[in-house]
Computed example of a mutant assay.
Amino acid sequence: MQSSEPVLEEVKLFQSLAERERYENMAELYAIIVATEQLERAYVKDWVSQADYTPACSKLIAQYKSILNLVSNDVPDVQKFMADYKLNCPAAWKRLQTGVPITVEHATVTDHDPSKSAKYVAETVQNFITLIDSLKLNRHAVDEIHPILSDLMQSLSNVSTLPVDFEGKTKLLEWLINLNQMRASDELTADQVRQLLFDLENAHNAFYRFLSQSS
């Protein structure tokens, strides 16, 4: 007696190593988005400390930017990718679009150690100088500017005495978000460089005014 059960045939998702790599890269993008959503929700619910959250989130953002370079042809629109694969991850989308952890976007420093405060001030000044010098040396590619600007935002957030509404931070955050939405190989136009330098120097001067008033 022959079985009436249907014969299940193996379905191959890929026919070559190149296709296999494409699927693996898209799976990696999917996993990063899900992991970021879980981390954001865990932080909001206070299930993960700020000390653990910030480096973990920064790592996921860096991985996201790296994987985007690999899937750019297959995933030109990440929001459509999320919709196609039923990824309901609004917190992850906001965080990955912003390009910085929420602890950098909104100052949440709890460490008021005076010795560390002096260290963070020194780091902030150095990051301002490094970024301004880099732009003046014609280093205008996103992958040259973004890491330094990200470090600057982090060091600003580490200065616990800095006012939440510090005038320079909002403008620099806007630049960081804009850079995060560009490709690593993109370069700023001459007008963009001029405006970024203007905003940096204004923020730098405002930071010095803050330091002189605090001393």
Rank of each mutant, 00 (worst) to 15 (best):
E5M: 11
E9W: 12
E9D: 06
V11I: 05
L13D: 05
F14Y: 07
F14K: 10
F14I: 08
E21P: 03
E24Q: 09
A27N: 05
E28F: 08
L29S: 04
A31L: 02
I33N: 02
V34F: 10
V34I: 13
Q38M: 13
L39R: 01
E40Y: 07
R41E: 15
V48Y: 00
A51W: 11
Y53G: 06
C57F: 04
S58G: 12
Y64N: 04
K65G: 14
S66R: 15
N69A: 14
S72G: 07
N73I: 03
P76E: 09
K80F: 06
Y85H: 15
K86Y: 15
L87S: 02
N88F: 14
C89G: 06
P90L: 08
A92N: 12
K94T: 14
L96M: 04
Q97V: 15
I102M: 13
T103H: 02
V104W: 09
A107H: 13
A107N: 11
T108V: 02
T108D: 07
D111K: 04
H112I: 14
S115A: 10
V121E: 07
V121R: 11
A122S: 07
V125C: 04
I129S: 05
L131P: 01
D133M: 05
L137M: 09
R139I: 01
R139D: 01
D143F: 07
D143R: 07
H146E: 13
I148M: 04
L149G: 03
L149M: 04
N158S: 12
S160Y: 11
L162E: 02
P163S: 06
E167F: 00
G168Y: 01
T170Y: 09
T170D: 02
L172E: 06
E174Y: 12
E174L: 04
N178W: 08
L179D: 05
Q181T: 11
Q181I: 07
R183Y: 10
A184L: 09
D186G: 05
D186A: 09
E187H: 09
E187W: 11
E187P: 03
A190D: 13
A190F: 13
Q195D: 10
L197S: 00
D199T: 01
D199Y: 07
D199A: 02
N202V: 13
N202W: 11
A206C: 02
F210W: 12
S212Q: 11
S212K: 10
Q213A: 15
Q213Y: 09
S214H: 15
